[in-house]
Design a protein around this nucleic acid. Structure first.
Lengths: 342, 342
DNA sequence: CTGTTAGCGCCTTCAA
DNA sequence: TTGAAGGCGCTAACAG
C-alpha cells in the first residue's frame, strides 16, 4: 500500500489540503463540522503527516548528545547511563528526540558536529564533558550552534555566552578531603583520571585547596592519574598502593573505581577502612554494591539529565535561562573511613 | 547568516541546481572541471545539504531502539548499556542514527510505534526484548514495519516472517544447572524475573529441563520471581533465603543481581560458596566487581548490539538475512560454587 | 472559516 | 554532460 498523503485525506474529505493541515495544527481555526469530517478521514485512511515534509517548515526536534568518550573502547559508565536515562525521559516528556553521537575531539569530529547541525539533523547539542581548550566548544561557538555543557570551561572571559550545568566539583572535593582530615588523616592520596577533563581538574583543585587550608603540604606523589579502563585502572592502582605505603586515605574518582580499589587493596592484604580509608564521587548502583559502604558524593545524575534537556529546549525556544546552573550534591557517609591506624 | 541552499551554490558556481545535486550524489556523472568548480563553491560557502529536503527522496537513516522497560523507574542495566554501546558503534560505522524510544506496551505505545514509522521519523525498529503475546510485535507485523527482535517469540507458527537475534537461553540455563548438579547439588533454586518476558521463560524452561533430565523433581517453592529494582530485589531475596533453608545453590538472573544476592546472603551469615553456590547470567563489569568471582554465562552483548544494527540495515536494504540468528555464549567458571555442605 | 497559490530544498526525469 | 521543469508533502500568505 502506497503512502497516504495529505492529498488523499483532502480528496477523501472533500476539502483542500490546507484545511487538513489546519485540522492537525490548529484545530480551533476550523469549523467543528469540517474538522470532524477530516479527523474521520485521517483515522479511516490511517494518515500520519510526514515529519520530513513538516521539517521544511519547522524544527525537527532532535537534540544531539555528545558522549564523553568513544564508545568503541570505553564502556557506558553507570554515570553516563544515568544521565542518558534522564535525557531520554525528559526528551519524551517534551516531545524531543535524542541523537547519541560519538565524535572524536579532532577536526573531523568538529566537522561532523557542524555538518549534523547545518544539515538539520539536530537542532542543538548537549555536551557531556569539557576538556581544556576544548575544540568542540570552540567549534560550536564559532558556528553559532546552540548547545549546553555539562561541566565547565577553562576560560570564562571569552566564553560568556555559553550555558553550563554541573555541580560544584571544587567544593565537593574539598568536603571529602576535609572529612578525611577531620578524621586525622594527613597522607591523603587522590586517584583521579585525566586532568585534560575540566571536572577532574576542578576536583584536583578542591583536593589541593583543602590540604592547603589545613596546612598540609601537597605531595605530588600522592596524586595518581589513572586510565578509564577498569583493568588498567586496577593495575595502576596496585602499583600506586605498593609505592606509597604512607598513604592512609584516598579520594577516588568514582564509586565504580572505588569498588575496584577496594578489591585491589584486599588483594594486597589491606582492609578498608582499617588500613585504608576511601571516599569517592557518585552514588550509582556501583556504590550500593560496594562493601564496606562508601562515603561518597551523591550527585543527582538523573535530574541533571532531565534538566540538561529542559535547558536545551529552553535555549532553542529563546527562553530566559540561567547561564551557569549549579546543582546541589550531598555527602553520603558510609563506613569506608576511620581514623588512621599507622 | 541565512541558510545556504543548493541555489546559492548553483548561482555561485554558475551551474544549475541539478548539477550541484549530481556533484554531491553521483560525482562521476559530472565533468571533472565543473565538479571542481562546484566542490569549490560548496567549501567556500559552507554548504550542507538539508537532510530534511533529501528525506523527501531517500530514507532518513534513523533506527528506533525500543527499550525493555520504562526509563522512568528502571535504571539502565549494564546489559542495556552494553547493547547500546554496540548499537551506537555500529550505527556510526554504517551511517545510521539511533532513536532511543521508551514506549509502554499498551495501545498508546503501539500507536506511537506506528506513528513514528509512518511519519518517517524512523526507518525501522530494533526491539530489545519480547513478552508473551507481545503487542509490540503484533503491531509491527500488522503494520508491515521492518524490525528485528533481540529475543524470541512465544509463537513460531504465525510469526515466520520476523527476524530475531539472541543466544540459546534454554541451553545456557541447562548448562548452569548441570554444572551445579555435577557438583552434587540437589536443592537448586532459580531467582528469575518476570516470566512475562520470553527470555526469562526460556531460562526457566532450561532450568526445569536440566532438573528433569537429572531425575530431580522441580520444586515450585524454589522458583523465585523477583522485581527488577535492586532494593526490592534485595528484600524479596532475603525473604526467599529465610524461607528456603534447604537450598544449597541458586541460578541467578544476572551478574548484578548475583552480586546483590551475595550481599544479602552475607547479611544473613551465609557465605558464598560455602553455604550457598551461585551461578548467573551476564559478565558485565558487575561480574568483575563481585567477590567471590562469579560462575556465569558470558554473552557477547556488545557484539549483539553491533549485529542487531547491521541486521536491521540489511533488512532495510532487502538483503538476504538469516531469520533466526543464534549467538554463541560461554560459561565462565569462577569460585562462587562448591560441593554442597549440608 | 476555507480554498488558491506559492514555495520550502532537493532530486529526477526529459531534452538538448 | 548539462539545464529546465516538475514534483516530493506540507505549510503559510492571501483572498474571498
Amino acid at each position: 500500500m502506497a503512502k497516504i498523503t495529505i492529498k488523499d485525506i483532502a480528496s477523501y474529505a472533500k476539502v483542500s489540503t490546507a484545511t487538513v493541515s489546519r485540522v492537525l495544527a490548529t484545530p480551533d481555526k476550523v469549523a467543528p463540522a469540517t474538522r470532524a469530517i477530516v479527523e474521520d478521514a485521517v483515522k479511516k485512511l490511517g494518515y500520519y503527516p510526514s515529519i520530513i515534509a513538516q521539517g521544511m517548515h519547522h524544527k525537527i526536534k532532535n537534540i544531539g548528545v555528545i558522549l564523553n568518550r568513544n564508545t568503541e573502547d570505553s564502556f557506558f559508565s553507570p554515570y553516563l547511563s544515568e544521565v542518558l536515562r534522564g535525557l531520554v525521559k525528559s526528551a519524551k516528556d517534551l516531545g524531543y528526540f535524542i541523537q547519541i553521537l560519538t565524535c572524536e575531539r579532532d577536526s573531523e569530529g568538529c566537522d561532523e558536529l557542524v555538518s549534523l547541525y547545518r544539515s538539520q539533523r539536530v537542532d542543538g547539542y548537549i555536551l557531556l564533558s569539557s576538556k581544556v581548550e576544548d575544540i568542540f566548544i570552540q567549534t560550536l561557538i564559532n558556528a553559532e550552534i546552540p548547545f549546553i555543557l555539562h561541566g565547565n570551561t577553562d576560560d570564562n572571559d571569552e566564553q560568556q555566552q555559553i550555558y553550563t550545568l554541573d555541580i560544584d566539583n571544587v567544593a565537593a572535593a574539598q568536603e571529602l578531603v576535609n572529612y578525611l582530615i577531620n578524621l586525622g588523616h594527613r597522607h591523603i592520596a587522590m586517584i583521579n583520571s585525566s586532568t585534560d577533563y575540566i571536572y577532574n581538574q576542578e576536583r584536583l583543585q578542591g583536593y589541593k585547596l583543602a590540604l592547603n587550608n589545613a596546612g598540609i603540604v601537597v605531595n605530588a606523589d600522592f596524586i595518581c592519574e589513572t586510565a578509564e579502563n577498569l583493568d588498567e585502572f586496577g593495575r595502576e592502582v596496585k602499583e600506586f598502593l605498593l609505592h606509597q605505603p604512607q598513604v592512609t586515605a584516598v579520594v577516588c574518582k568514582s564509586d565504580i573505581s572505588a569498588r575496584q580499589l577496594i578489591m585491589v587493596a584486599n588483594s594486597l592484604g589491606m582492609h578498608v577502612p582499617h588500613d585504608l580509608s576511601i571516599v569517592c564521587f557518585n552514588e550509582t548502583y556501583a556504590a550500593k554494591m560496594a562493601q564496606p559502604q562508601l562515603t561518597t558524593i551523591s550527585i543527582p545524575i538523573y535530574q541533571i539529565g532531565i534538566e540538561l534537556l529542559k535547558s536545551m529546549v529552553a535555549i532553542l525556544n529563546h527562553q530566559q535561562l540561567c547561564q551557569r546552573q549549579l546543582f546541589p550534591y550531598s555527602v553520603i557517609i558510609g563506613n569506608s573511613c576511620q581514623m588512621p591506624v599507622k
